[in-house]
């Protein structure tokens, strides 16, 4: 019941409900940034996530990761079933930004598209330098973002991504499947 309705609610409304309903679960997010309009991410983290999501699933004639709600999906899961990944996201996003600012004097989302791509390819290949990325954390965190972005874009829209069932439309796949009503509205 709750899962299905959340998608339809505005984020503010959802936050109010979630706070009433589940008490302490949002403390982490609140400590981090009191002004955030997200459940877990700070506004700055969410901007970075949007840029990462577009790199993983770039917009073309179909919406990309950002527009389809990848950040919203991950944000939502991080205060739900993915609570165990909270620390990794906090650490990983911070590490990406500090890397970019040291090396390029800019935030990731301000870098050129090809620079962003090259940066992520380094992460994917496990070639990042510095203590932030020790023990293969570069590959691990990249894989986490990649996997979660794919879930957001190609999974059910009830979890906060795949806005308007965009990926199902792209694949020409009727969705959702409902008995007697096997079509989505275009």
């Amino acid at each position: 019941m709750e899962i299905r309705n959340q998608y339809k609610l505005s984020r503010r409304k959802f936050l109010q409900l979630a706070i009433m309903g589940s008490g302490g679960i949002l403390l982490f997010a609140k400590c981090n940034s009191s002004a955030s309009s997200w459940r877990f991410f700070s506004n700055a983290e969410a901007q970075l996530m949007d840029a990462l999501a577009d790199q993983i699933i770039p917009p073309d004639e179909w919406p990309g990761g950002r527009e389809s709600g990848v950040t919203n999906y991950i944000d939502k899961q991080l205060v739900g079933p993915y609570q165990r990944f909270q620390a990794k996201y906090r650490k990983g996003l911070q590490a990406i930004q500090s890397n970019c600012e040291t090396e390029f004097q800019r935030k990731f989302e301000k870098m050129a598209w090809t620079e962003q791509t090259a940066f992520l390819e380094q992460m994917e290949a496990g070639k990042m330098k510095g203590t932030d990325w020790a023990d293969g954390f570069d590959r691990e965190f990249f894989d986490l973002i990649r996997t979660h972005s794919m879930q957001a874009f190609y999974g059910s829209s009830r979890h906060g991504g795949n806005k308007d069932n965009v990926s199902y439309k792209m694949l020409k796949l009727d969705y959702p499947l409902i008995i007697g009503q096997n079509r989505y509205k275009s």
Binding site: Q55, I57, R146, S149, Y154, M170, L171, L173
Partner: peptide, 16 residues
């Protein structure tokens, strides 16, 4: 490729 433009195109072109 497991992500990016090429990955999305592969998905779109080959799902069926």
């Amino acid at each position: 490729k497991m992500w990016g433009k090429q990955h999305k195109e592969f998905q779109r072109n080959n799902f069926k």
